[in-house]
Design a protein around this nucleic acid. Sequence first.
DNA 1: CTGAAAGCGCTAACAT
DNA 2: ATGTTAGCGCTTTCAG
Lengths: 337, 337
Amino acid sequence: MPTLADIAKISGVGVMSVSRVVNGTRKVSRETEEKVRKAISRIGYEPNEAARMLKGHRARVLGLVVPELADPFFAICANAIQEAAREAGYMTLMVACGHNVAVERQQVELMLRRKIAGLIVIPSSRENDFYSTFLEQKVPIISVDRPLENMETDTLVVDNREAAIQAVEHLQSHGHRNILCLTEEEIVFTTLERLAGYNEAMLTQKLQPRVLVIGSTAGSVRESLPALLNSTPTITAIFAVADVLALEALRELRRLKVQIPEQIAFIAFDDFDAATLMTPTITVAAQPVAELGHTAVSLLLERIKSGSTDAPRRVVLKTSLLIRESCGCGILAKTSK
Amino acid sequence: MPTLADIAKISGVGVMSVSRVVNGTRKVSRETEEKVRKAISRIGYEPNEAARMLKGHRARVLGLVVPELADPFFAICANAIQEAAREAGYMTLMVACGHNVAVERQQVELMLRRKIAGLIVIPSSRENDFYSTFLEQKVPIISVDRPLENMETDTLVVDNREAAIQAVEHLQSHGHRNILCLTEEEIVFTTLERLAGYNEAMLTQKLQPRVLVIGSTAGSVRESLPALLNSTPTITAIFAVADVLALEALRELRRLKVQIPEQIAFIAFDDFDAATLMTPTITVAAQPVAELGHTAVSLLLERIKSGSTDAPRRVVLKTSLLIRESCGCGILAKTSK
DNA sequence: CTGAAAGCGCTAACAT
DNA sequence: ATGTTAGCGCTTTCAG
């Protein structure tokens, strides 16, 4: 693999001329450019990025840390991020840390050593002290979907609370008063916000919030849901704060032969594939996932280019309630309960 | 950001001693090690990977090229790859090229400049001449899911043909003789193999293959499927060679109020989420997606470590037919047709 | 076991 | 417009 110097020797010009031709940094005479191009195309040449970076420059690389890629939300978001980064001339160093903070901490340090220009992170947990090293080195960070608490970084989230309120109010508009909120054990920011929205919407209408916390084990829904459905007063609607929860619950309701939306109306978070395939189709609060990714890159690049250390920004994207059948909208003769 | 030399100065030892402590390369006396560690923890130190690489070493980085991440198959595969790479001490430079060869070509060259140690690729097209540069520079490649044609690289695929045969034979065992194969316009390797398997299974039983090619536009199924279902002889079963096709077809069948499996039995490729959520649940030919990812990394690392240029290997993983309801297995009184 | 020197491939900063 | 020089931060090499 030939170096700049090799090309210089062959084409009979100085190294800097070659460098200038390769990078288009400054004017070079027609003929030297010709000579250099000829030499390059003859023996081939690939600039060595490592050498370039030694001059103190940062790599044209963005770091991306997500909890995992198997989850469509993260995957679609990562896809959009990669795409946007690429279009801006950056490569993407990606880590799926398996929801594991130890891995997150270690990999993030490795990214720093590789001199990434900036970092986009969907934090796996509340623990995030290790990101301070980035700020010390003036490497900008943006957190997506969940904030990095107590960190002076840009943040991009969706309006989870408002989305939950919308969903619950919609169920209420169908006459439901006993609405169950299905939430998860692991306390992540988004879940809490949605739960808060649920509570707010219920209390505003002076309704009693009823929350079922689902453990992380697969059979967890199966254990707890049936009993709850038979309790008094009878639950007539369910709001699930995450798609995984919704899927499990729907499987269980299906097994119990519960009619949706007649016996139980249902609204879930996230517009998962199956939502339009099931009978009935599922009404969901949809997040602008790809937009989240693109926006994250824009915000980050802005910081990188300007080098500004102004007060961190918090950008909030809107969700949209996709009304389908499971909320009861498909049913013509809906009697109020 | 302090350098090795800084640490050396502070701790009052030579740079090489510092280097040796940091890398654990060779024996260092207790006390120098002590001094160095102290200095490091006092002012902090992060090795500069770029400088390390200048000595001709390749980066501990694997390249990963996939068509996109929004598709769960690629996402789960990428997830497994990242995980396995990380566990082996490699970072992952990832590109989702949007099924676009031009992007693939360009990004792959950038990876080369970054001195990646090896490349894992799910090719977006048949065009792949640009990968030859890697082989020239002795950077190993492994192609996953689809082979790199005419390239001397390791390949990891699943047995698509056999999977299709299994699926079609299963439908035949239910008495179906008029089985429609739903396939896509874009001619990718996997699709062709599955189609070939379908044809083989049909011809073996002296049955007439019937293939419907679905265009890439969303409404394509809606246009062509209804007419076909009314044609003679009546189709009684469908085999869809990809999950996207299956989803579209299932949506359409649902709209047409076609009973599955009574009127039409159905088997699809890929174990998509919705398969267990729909009514009926969908029988599928499932690929070992995560295993595909892990195996790819193992094979690649083997090459990287050994540096061997032996004949390329082709590893074939088995699929499994997950029998659920849509094939007709749930129906007790199944009359042969 | 330790240190000094050379140089990896490139570019910023000066020369010319 | 072009060439020359001096490093960037590290490790390989060779001497102590």
